[in-house]
Design a protein around this nucleic acid. Sequence first.
DNA 1: TTCAAAAAGTGAGTTTTATCAATTTTTATA
DNA 2: TATAAAAATTGATAAAACTCACTTTTTGAA
Lengths: 235, 235
Amino acid sequence: MSIKGVFPIDKWDFKSESVLADLPADDLEILTANQTEQVYKKGEIIFREAAYPAGIFYIIDGKVKKYKLDKDAKEQIIYVANKGELLGYHAILSENRYPDCAAALEECRIAFIPKEDFLETLNRSKVLSRRLLKTLSHEFAVLANSLSMFAQKSVRERLALQLVVLREKYKINFQAGMPVEINMSRDDLASLVGTARENVVRVLSEFKEDKILETKGRKIIVLNVTKLIKIADYK
Amino acid sequence: MSIKGVFPIDKWDFKSESVLADLPADDLEILTANQTEQVYKKGEIIFREAAYPAGIFYIIDGKVKKYKLDKDAKEQIIYVANKGELLGYHAILSENRYPDCAAALEECRIAFIPKEDFLETLNRSKVLSRRLLKTLSHEFAVLANSLSMFAQKSVRERLALQLVVLREKYKINFQAGMPVEINMSRDDLASLVGTARENVVRVLSEFKEDKILETKGRKIIVLNVTKLIKIADYK
DNA sequence: TTCAAAAAGTGAGTTTTATCAATTTTTATA
DNA sequence: TATAAAAATTGATAAAACTCACTTTTTGAA
């Protein structure tokens, strides 16, 4: 049974995977002509906020956190990007510097496409430009949702919600039917939820108490998604 | 003296004004062929979240709040759009329903452009599609900033920040050199800052105490932007 | 201009969240 | 597998924000 129907996962997921899928062959050829591939270790930085973009990135495998740093170098995670998603196109399209940082959450294989090839393909391909418009405007909806989540929900509600979303994102790492393990540091989880690490830990303990989840070391296994969804939406 | 150089207003403003400016004449003609114009009174709703979009809107004059409603019908303002900006294109481009509501903050003159004409123009005009890509990716940066503002700043800091931004937006209502009056209900201000009305009022009183601003009825006149900027950015 | 309704403002008490200091567990590596 | 470093967890306390009940001021319609 899928989560769709009980939880609007689309509201929380960019789904930029579809940008390059089945792109006309000649467009794809120009785009990938000078593509290079690189492996990033867990924690490695892919790009930094305010740097000038040299190209875009395609996540062949792995997960990436997009985040901003505040004055005290505290991280705020904006989004967790998954296998198949594009990174770094906002900076190129807005003719500006990177609006956020990106770092590998686990070992990643990532392709780099130079700016020139991306812009050239964009210039030729109506399909690509239409898909980017679609993706970007969907991203708007996702960020608007996140914004109101931060403004209106409590830490407990936000954590419940993010666990539901993360579980969907980590499904890709496990075979269908197998228990999904969310493998994320408490610090990253705190920065995603927008609170202090200690609060995340405390709420996780409550959830464990209530048999909503269990932990294996740092890994989180959700036992009762329905309850999480209810908590997230509660009231 | 402009605020640029002391405050990065771009980080908080969509600037979609530039989308239609100097659009090639024939593109503009198709786009505006069936355009209709309407006046919205203060408070009137332009579109509602989750409705199917019939077209896009262009603000000829006035200000519009874009917001979401939570379960208790409490508003969360995502963005304040100004004269010259476009509304409602996200829904059309993402082939989805409106991600948020829009309502007039003051009396507005707004042009409506049917979906078909918008899509037709988009299909013909590389300039329009390129500009929308630029605008949307800039919006991403703005929303990412707002997100981390909510997650990391206190109510006092957020209010200071929003007052700086609002002052820029309300400049358009006053002649250069004249004092700028921010005319917004405390409820709207609270919903923009993401807190309760009472907290907004309390912090405003502090600011008044510190000679950072004065009020004329509900209207707010900023006396010391520099201090507000400092408070907003403080540590 | 008046005046009722709506909005703004104030204060007290409660809840939520953050911070600090410590201890325990886990992880990564020799 | 041992072990030191990193991460996670716990508890106590402080600070921030929220809620409710109420008063005052402002606004807009008659």
